[in-house]
Design a protein around this nucleic acid. Structure first.
Length: 423
RNA sequence: GUGGCCAUAGCUCAGCUGGUUAGAGUGCCAGGUUGUGGCCCUGGAGGUCGUGGGUUCAAAUCCCACUGGCCACCCCA
């Protein structure tokens, strides 16, 4: 019915939902900053090349999910479908890794994929994420996973399952790739069309094809092909997570959709979400990414968590805190002649650091007070003819239905005290 | 991108097999109360029945297309 609706797969986040949204973002920031992660923002559009090289040309994202367009100079740009490539470009491009090592950063923002929308899946969706760039240590992999886990804990979301796997280093992956090709080639005629192509372009992704799941069951496991170093690295990560009381389900079949992962990969699933949309987020180590983007080889590890889906789960569980009232006091004038005086009083209260709404309607006083209830304001400051004449203000405690009239000089102190008592 | 279901006031929904001016609840605004609220009573505003086409004397109702939502597949957040 609105003539101009938001584009397919996008939506408006309006109050009061916007409070839940902010709660989640604040919680994330607070958790990761307690680990010393610093805020960062990168552009929502990047050179198409960044994702083609960074995410991997054979991934679904690059093949069919990117919003790509030309700017006026004919350059190909893309709305970012994920965050890691952009952050690595920014950090290494600006040589931030020369200043400190590792670089620990976090971000939050919108991402874009041209998917068919449904609940918990949008074309513009939001993620919070962290990246830790410049050092290779199992302690950092564990730190990342632990932060993600603590974040959900702080939100109060239960029923989560951590899926943990390792893809090994480049040599391991090469060996594994070969093993998969050897395994799947004799089956080639029975594979779906996509998988026939994957067999050449990206054999790892054969594993997460649902159509050919029966073959994946008997496929070789990466774990059996890892060298001693990779196994030890993973074992250390798992042990450190145990130390942190983070329960991990080792799952040697999760591969992740993006090409750049090495060693640790993980996903966090929630039992309540449907089908394959049960993933609230995931991440892993990407020691090969910097090089793929043309930077000096630099290790990194990070995660991205879906804001929309996490909020969906939080709402289902009823753990979203009720929105805090948006103001401490509503200032109302009983009649128009007192309007300017009321404005001045509102100004004085804001000067004392309070959140004050000025009622400018020409409604009756009872309607104005009704409005105060709706706003959730604990106090109303009433300026009528008497107050204007005497240089006073009436402070009404809306929950106790009690009020007192005080001099304007005392007003700020009385309001502040009343709010403290009520809090 | 493929398939299924759906679309009526801001919101939640009625509207039987097509038949005059399309309803309810809630929310909004106002009056009841010329300076006192969360309840109550009364009234009002608000809809090109998602959009466009078709069938018919007549369409919210039947048919088609488009748009959007939900669900499944794919994949992921």
């Amino acid at each position: 019915m609105p003539e101009i609706a938001p584009p397919r797969g996008t939506r408006d986040i309006l109050p009061p939902d916007s409070y839940a949204w902010r709660w989640l973002l604040d919680t994330h920031r607070s958790v990761v900053e307690s680990y010393g992660y610093q805020p960062l923002d990168t552009p929502v559009m990047e050179s198409t090349d960044l994702f083609a090289r960074g995410v991997g040309a054979d991934t679904d994202i690059v093949e069919k999910q990117m919003f790509t367009f030309s700017d006026r100079g004919g350059r190909s740009l893309t709305l970012r479908p994920e965050g890691t490539a952009g952050v690595v470009r920014a950090v290494l491009g600006k040589r931030l890794d020369q200043e400190m090592r590792p670089v620990r950063v976090h971000y939050a923002g919108p991402f874009f994929r041209a998917e068919n929308p449904q609940r918990g899946r949008y074309r513009q969706f939001a993620q919070v994420g962290v990246e830790c760039i410049g050092e290779r240590s199992p302690a950092l992999d564990a730190e990342i996973v632990e932060m993600a886990w603590r974040f959900f804990e702080r939100l109060g979301i239960t029923g989560l399952q951590l899926q943990l796997n390792t893809l090994g280093d480049r040599d391991d992956r090469a060996r594994y790739r070969e093993a998969l090709v050897n395994y799947y080639t004799p089956l080639r005629d029975d594979l779906c069309d996509d998988c026939k192509r994957r067999l050449e372009s990206n054999p790892l992704r054969l594993l997460d094809c649902k159509a050919d799941a029966r073959f994946a069951e008997k496929a070789p496991l990466i774990w059996d092909l890892l060298d001693a170093g990779s196994k030890e690295f993973f074992t250390t990560v798992a042990e450190m997570l145990e130390d942190a009381d983070v329960v991990a389900h080792i799952n040697h079949r999760i591969v992740r959709g993006l090409d750049y992962y090495t060693d640790t990969v993980f996903e966090i699933w929630h039992e309540s979400l449907h089908g394959q949309q049960n993933s609230l987020g995931g991440g892993g180590r990407y020691d090969g990414l910097a090089e793929a983007l043309g930077f000096p080889s630099t290790p990194g590890v990070g995660y991205a968590l879906g804001v929309d889906r996490s909020l969906l789960v939080a709402e289902q569980l009823g753990v979203v805190p009720p929105p805090r009232p948006s103001c401490d006091a509503l200032v109302v004038s009983v009649e128009t002649p007192q309007a300017r005086r009321a404005a001045a009083i509102a100004r004085a209260l804001r000067g004392a650091g309070l959140r004050v709404v000025l009622d400018v309607s020409d409604r009756r006083l009872d309607r104005k007070l009704r409005n105060a209830d709706k706003l959730g304001a604990p106090l109303a400051v009433i300026i009528g003819e008497d107050e204007a004449r005497d240089g006073t203000a009436t402070i009404r405690d809306l929950s106790r239905r009690a009020q007192e009239t005080v001099s304007e000089q005392a007003m700020v102190a009385v309001v502040t005290d009343a709010l403290e008592r009520l809090a």
